[in-house]
Simulated assay, not measured.
Amino acid sequence: MGGVSLSLRMLYVGGTCALPLATSFPPSPKEILASIQHSKSTILATVPLFLEQLILLLHQDDNIGFQMLARLKFVSCGGAACPPHIGKQLTERGVNLVIGYGSTGQ
């Protein structure tokens, strides 16, 4: 439900939803980065597992991908707890990370 809620809020404020341009399902981190660049997206909504896979790729490309994520308004992460080391790597490189998991938990 969180993804639907985020999408509706984004559309309400004039945002655009872009589905990844991919040849596989689920899309690979490389395909997601290409989609962000091609569509001029401003927000990425994803889960922690994907962020872990994405960070492995980003370390291989001389931080160009980190710069691409840092230009987004924010990266929203939910569906599971985000490991602290993932959040730290992203925020240290200027990525505005919004965690949407656990906000109603104990």
Rank of each mutant, 00 (worst) to 15 (best):
C82P: 00
L58Y: 12
F74I: 05
L51S: 11
Q67M: 06
A81P: 09
R93E: 04
H85D: 08
V95Q: 08
L72D: 00
H59I: 05
G78F: 07
K73I: 08
L58M: 06
I64S: 09
K73M: 10
R93Q: 09
I64W: 03
P84N: 13
N96Q: 08
V95C: 12
L57A: 02
A70M: 03
I86L: 14
L69F: 11
N96K: 14
F74W: 15
E92W: 06
Q89N: 05
I86N: 06
H85V: 02
I99K: 15
G100N: 13
S103L: 13
S76E: 00
Q67H: 11
C77V: 13
Q67W: 02
Q89W: 01
L90F: 01
Y101W: 11
K73P: 02
P84I: 13
A81W: 11
L54M: 12
I55Y: 11
M68Q: 11
E92Y: 06
Q67A: 03
V98D: 11
L56M: 10
P83H: 02
F74Y: 10
G94D: 09
S103Q: 14
L72V: 00
L58E: 02
Q67V: 03
G78L: 03
V75C: 05
L69G: 04
G102F: 14
N63I: 13
G102H: 14
Q53F: 08
V95W: 11
G87H: 05
P84G: 08
A70T: 02
R71T: 12
L56H: 07
K88V: 12
L56I: 04
D62P: 00
H59C: 10
G65D: 01
Q89D: 11
D62S: 15
K88S: 12
R71K: 09
D61R: 03
I64M: 09
K73T: 12
A81E: 11
G87K: 07
L72T: 00
Y101A: 00
S103P: 10
E52S: 08
K73R: 11
L69K: 12
V98Q: 08
D61H: 03
L57Y: 03
R71P: 03
A81S: 08
Y101C: 04
L97G: 12
A70Q: 07
E52C: 03
G94E: 10
